[in-house]
Design a protein around this nucleic acid. Sequence first.
DNA 1: CATAATTGGTTTCAAATGAAACTAATTGCG
DNA 2: CGCAATTAGTTTCATTTGAAACCAATTATG
Lengths: 146, 146
Amino acid sequence: MSFNLNTFLPYRLSVVANRISQQLAQVYQKNHNLDIPQWRVLAILANGLDRMTATQVAQAASMDKVRISRTMARLRHKGLVEEKACLDDGRARRYQLTVAGRALYDAVLPAVRTCESRLFSCFDAEETRELHRLLDKLSAHLDSWQ
Amino acid sequence: MSFNLNTFLPYRLSVVANRISQQLAQVYQKNHNLDIPQWRVLAILANGLDRMTATQVAQAASMDKVRISRTMARLRHKGLVEEKACLDDGRARRYQLTVAGRALYDAVLPAVRTCESRLFSCFDAEETRELHRLLDKLSAHLDSWQ
DNA sequence: CATAATTGGTTTCAAATGAAACTAATTGCG
DNA sequence: CGCAATTAGTTTCATTTGAAACCAATTATG
């Protein structure tokens, strides 16, 4: 009968995830003027395939194509990402970090890692592993029908 | 050195939380034309104090005052929430569900609960408890310095 | 091989967002 | 008391968002 939003798992997850994202965003926002989508795309390009299409990035970053399109335009405008024609498909383009983009990514990453550690410093290794495991399971579950 | 967004806890939390929220939103969106903020405010008013001020609702729903203001206006417009002057403070107002608001909430709640069960049906009782525990710990940790 | 259907990506448009400014009422403090 | 600082809530404004329409290239199908 009675319902408490504070014990409602979807709500709790959402609130905690947003607080975490918010904290983290400050790291690359304040010091490097990157927003969350930009940071995500940089991270994907820095660690993904050699030259990725927008669709591949969208897939890897769990972002929709409209956001990718706009984020790429901004990153390109800042000189952090470079666009080339895609040889095997005239509709697509291939993206990769520029030297400046790589340098910025390398500059931001340590601070991001530090922030992450601090955010989750209340967990011991076992708890962190357990959270990963639960997220794995939940993701797989959602995949299985969505 | 190498960094993988897929094992980055803030990213994983964010993606999973959004997928969950999205699924759940469909329940009250499609059938009852409520968006997430509206649902949250209804839930707070249905289960919170007798008559709450906007600030109290904002606090309880983890939403900022601008969103509360706009959400209240919409709910009031739909006849789901009723606003009264606040006797002890002329700046504030007190809100409560109307009969229609309560009826809508009662109509939505079972579907919400059903959806929640389905979303987390991959977890046994122990895992659910564990996730709650980890979220408790993490929330307390964030509270302690933010 | 033509043409329909699909896919990659961008643009448009209306709505949502949130920081900052604002109004109005309340509380502190000399 | 009287004025400064704070608090409750709304509005403004510039930006972000995402669904749907769109264009262009590719693939499937008769």
